[in-house]
Design a protein around this nucleic acid. Structure first.
Lengths: 269, 269
DNA sequence: TATAAAGGTGAATCCGCAC
DNA sequence: AGTGCGGATTCACCTTTAT
């Protein structure tokens, strides 16, 4: 059998590409799928400026049933590609995470935590009609209830949290400023680029050096960039050629680090 | 038609009882359904004392399908009983909230917020195998996407939050100490009693004085107790006679307050 | 050059009523 | 049902421009 690819960006439809990869070839999955936001009208701030909406074609679905079918397809492939001691992270908002979570349970995943990304600088609710939506939700799951072993660097996380056990609420800022990748027009290159700090915590908590991390919705490559910085191998899949080009350039600019190493003992469930 | 009941505890199966109530008779629903926790083994503290787990008979379901069917049944009745300008709150943990949320969307509910109850004093993960599970999730939803109007006391919430817009993350302590109702044996009377502070925020944010609040899983009556203190009418449904007895006694001990009043202008969607 | 003021922006399911 | 208008509505950053 041919060895699985590593440290590579595959450009194309993630479901089709995952079907070409062998069973049980990755240690960790991080997935940031479309949220299916269904925004109705444009939103104006109190100062009369317009909020840049997420109106990308990749976030459009005909209905909930087609979103569900899409979710089952890519999630099922992720489960097949995961090693039997691997885990998966999926991030979403209240628009999609409940459907995604229910489908994960249906496919046999067994949840370890729901983790709340509490944004330190969220956009307010300008009209005063709801509570400020300051969070996104991550689901961390193993492949099955029966799974005996998975990687969790408990002590590293505890040390990161001033010596106290780390909770499932993470206060991390939005990706802005120099970290946010801009296009030639000076606008953000991707609507939903995630902060590296978020991926840093995910990858360092739940994988070892030398592990393979798969991201089926690679976007501008945050997962690959952080994986490379942390000495993990990575596989990125991205449908949009422009996003893929940006991601490849971004990751190529990061220097390769030394050989694999294990820094903490894995937890068992 | 007979007027709907008010300020009353109905003892029995919530689905059967809700079916006897007329359409559109309540302004607000708060529901804390069984969590379907699937604890495989008893949880043991490091000092070998046993943690009282949620293993009551009412929390067992054969499988995910029966939990879904149960959820659709009670949730559908709640939707029928809600007025067309009403909203519903449902609380759950990562064990059940994803299924509950997906079913709510399927039934036509339109989400306003997911609210994170961030416990200030959560139980640690004794074995160091996961992140501390410090949260529960509430879904706040209106009946349909087309719904034009609902109650939200934006300014009251803002005032409660030092003059800044309140976020969807609420730091509230677990229900302990004197507030936690004990049985004759000195043990907690109910395994999942919610803090009154949580219900206070829910009810004061999304209802007016004189409104009717329905809780189909009344337990020891926290919703009714807070509703009475805030000058709201309430309808509680509880299957367990002992819980119902405790709840009735608890609410009877609260003095009736003055006549209805509106303290803030309702938001419109 | 240092400090202050002004401007920009973030996965957003963000108005109600009269005509 | 669509349109138009009155009125109420924002937080934490970072970047750019002005003093």
């Amino acid at each position: 059998m041919t060895p699985p690819p590593r440290d590579i960006l595959l450009q194309g439809d993630c479901i089709e590409i995952m079907r070409t990869l062998p069973d049980a070839c990755v240690d960790l999955v991080f997935a940031d799928p479309p949220y299916n936001l269904q925004l109705q009208n444009e939103l104006i701030r109190p100062d009369s400026t317009r909020v840049a909406a997420v109106d990308d074609a990749w976030d459009k679905f005909d209905d909930l049933a087609s979103y569900d079918a899409f979710t089952r397809a890519w999630m099922g492939e992720c489960r097949r590609l995961l090693k039997d001691d691997g885990t998966i992270w999926v991030i979403g908002s209240y628009h999609n995470i409940f459907r995604v979570g229910a489908i994960m349970m249906d496919l046999g995943f067994w949840f370890l935590n729901d983790v709340i990304w509490h944004k330190t600088n969220p956009m307010p609710n300008f009209r005063g009609t709801r509570f400020t939506n300051a969070t996104e939700t991550l689901i961390w799951a193993q492949k099955s209830q029966a799974q005996k072993r998975y990687t969790f660097h408990y002590h590293d996380m505890k040390a990161l949290n001033d010596g106290k056990q780390m909770q499932n609420v993470w206060r991390i800022a939005l990706c802005t400023g120099a970290e946010r990748i801009k296009g030639a027009d000076g606008k953000k290159a991707h609507s939903t680029q995630k902060p590296e700090a978020l991926l840093h915590r995910v990858i360092s908590a739940s994988s070892d050096r030398g592990d393979v991390v798969l991201d089926p919705f690679f976007g501008t490559g945050t997962t690959g960039a952080v994986a490379k910085k942390l000495g993990r191998h990575w596989i990125g899949i991205e449908r949009d050629p422009e996003y893929a080009r940006i991601a490849q350039k971004r990751i190529d600019a990061i220097p390769q680090i030394d050989q694999p190493d294990h820094t903490d003992t894995p937890a068992e469930s």
